Simulated scan of single mutants.
Amino acid sequence: MRTTRLLVTAVTAFAAVLIPATAQAGGAQPSTIAGGLNAPRGLAFAPDGALYVAEAGTGGSGPCLPGPEGGQVCFGTSGSVTRIGHHGQKRVLTGLPSLAGPGGANAIGPSDVSLQGNGGMYVTVGLGGNPATVRPQLPPAGQQLGLLLRNGKPAADISGYEVRANPDGGEVDTNPNSVEALPGGRAVADAGGNDLLWAGSDGRITTIATFPDRLVDAPPQLGLPPGTKIPMQAVPTSVVRGPDGALYVGELTGFPFQQGAARVWRVVPGHAPQVYAQGFTNIIDLGFDHGRLYVLEIARNGLLGAETDPSGALLRVDRHGPPQVVSQNLTLPGGLALKDGNAYVSNCGACPGPAGSIVRIRL
Results as ranks from 00 to 15, higher is better:
Leu147Trp: 06
Gln143Thr: 15
Gly291Leu: 10
Ala141Tyr: 07
Leu252Tyr: 14
Val11Cys: 14
Gly341Trp: 07
Thr281Leu: 10
Phe255Leu: 12
Leu336Asp: 04
Arg362Ile: 11
Gly79Asp: 05
Lys229Asn: 04
Pro63Gly: 02
Gly321Trp: 01
Gly120Arg: 12
Ser357Cys: 07
Asn130Phe: 10
Ala21Cys: 12
Ala23Pro: 01
Ile283Tyr: 05
Lys90Pro: 00
Ala343Gln: 12
Ile33Arg: 08
Leu196Val: 12
Arg164Gln: 14
Cys351Met: 09
Cys64Asn: 11
Gly117Asp: 04
Ala189Thr: 08
Ala299Trp: 05
Gly200Pro: 02
Val216His: 08
Gly129Tyr: 13
Ala34Leu: 06
Gly254Met: 04
Ala107Lys: 11
Gln324Lys: 15
Gly287Pro: 00
Gly126Met: 04
Gly119Cys: 04
Gly335Trp: 01
Ser111Asn: 07
Ala155Val: 03
Pro333Arg: 05
Ala141Arg: 11
Gly270Glu: 14
Asn151Ile: 02
Ser346His: 00
Gly227Val: 09
Asn118Leu: 08
Gly101Ala: 15
Glu307Trp: 02
Ile158Asp: 05
Gly192Val: 06
Ser327Cys: 08
Val295Ser: 10
Val275Pro: 02
Ala132Pro: 02
Glu297Gln: 15
Ala39Pro: 05
Asp289Ile: 03
Gly200Cys: 03
Gly279Asn: 12
Glu171Cys: 01
Ala350Leu: 06
Gly71Trp: 05
Ala187Leu: 13
Ser357Lys: 14
Lys153Gln: 14
Ala262Arg: 11
Ala246Lys: 08
Pro231Met: 04
Arg360Asp: 01
Val317Cys: 02
Asp168His: 12
Pro310Trp: 07
Arg214Gly: 10
Tyr248Arg: 03
Leu363Asn: 06
Gly254Lys: 03
Gly245Leu: 01
His271Thr: 15
Gly185His: 07
Val325Thr: 15
Asn282Val: 01
Gly227Tyr: 05
Ala165Val: 12
Arg2His: 12
Pro154Asn: 04
Val113Ala: 04
Tyr344His: 08
Val53Phe: 09
Gly57Ile: 03
Val267Ala: 01
Gly49Asn: 14
Gly95Asp: 05
Ser61Glu: 09
Gly60Ile: 04
Asp289Trp: 13
Ile19Met: 14
Gln328Met: 11
Ala23Arg: 14
Ala23His: 06
Arg135Trp: 09
Arg41Asn: 05
Gly334Asp: 14
Glu297Pro: 00
Lys90Val: 15
Gln274Tyr: 00
Ala218Asp: 13
Gly184Asn: 09
Ile284Ser: 13
Gly146His: 00
Gln328Val: 04
Asp289Arg: 11
Phe75Met: 10
Pro225Met: 03
Thr207Gln: 13
Gly85Cys: 06
Ala155Asn: 03
His86Phe: 04
Pro66Tyr: 09
Asp168Phe: 08
